[in-house]
């Protein structure tokens, strides 16, 4: 039980995909203009990650080694397209905000990375738990980055405005994304990372 639980919690700090593994930087920087946007992007990635991890752990034993990467990419792309269709149908607002970065989950190194490093060597349930753990870690990081940028840039948190007027606009724009990620990484390195 302890081992199962650690599969999930490892993704939070020890194997945090954003601050430790530094994977999937593009959506991390682009979609975190607010906490809600970061959360939505994280959950979308979580969805693909869990399903593709499960499918790949089932497929791995029967796929010849030579074509395993193309097969994985096809599987991931399929789940991403499923996600696109489902989001268009049920959460059109979120789909419109995240835009290009939903199809780009296909090339998010986290998804292919977990397939290669974990899912093809473990059984379905472990792979699913690993997907949930890493996905939640990613969601958490994106939400935190989004929250910091929203608080500093728009004077709001999760869409709730606690300060009249604007914040420091630069934080919502491109430079703020790099700056906030850089400083959060510093804080993470200093206080949370166990060497």
């Amino acid at each position: 039980m302890g081992k199962k639980l650690s599969l999930i919690t490892d993704g939070f700090i020890k194997n945090n995909p954003t601050f430790v593994l530094v994977l999937g930087m593009c959506p991390t920087l682009a979609t975190t203009t607010s906490a809600i946007n970061g959360l939505e992007m994280g959950l979308a990635t979580l969805f693909v990650l869990v399903l593709s991890n499960m499918a790949i752990s089932l497929l791995a034993p029967i796929v010849p080694d030579k074509v395993h990467i193309p097969v994985y990419i096809v599987v991931i792309a399929t789940f991403v397209t499923v996600l696109q269709l489902v989001m268009q149908a049920f959460t059109p607002g979120a789909y419109a905000t995240l835009g290009l970065f939903i199809p780009l989950i296909v090339v998010n190194c986290i998804v292919l990375g977990r397939a290669e490093a974990f899912a093809n060597k473990h059984n379905v349930w472990e792979s699913a738990l690993d997907g949930i753990g890493v996905g939640l870690g990613f969601t958490l990081s994106l939400t935190v980055i989004g929250l910091v940028r929203e608080v500093l840039g728009s004077g709001a948190a999760f869409g709730w405005k606690f300060m009249p007027g604007d914040g420091v606009l630069a934080f919502v724009m491109a430079p703020g994304a790099f700056l906030v990620l850089g400083y959060l990484m510093v804080i993470f390195n200093k206080y949370l990372k166990k060497s």
């Binding site: 530094v22 703020g176 850089g182 990484m185």
Partner: peptide, 10 residues
Amino acid sequence: LPIALITVSI
């Protein structure tokens, strides 16, 4: 990376 990211920000 952190210092690199801050540089990119500038």
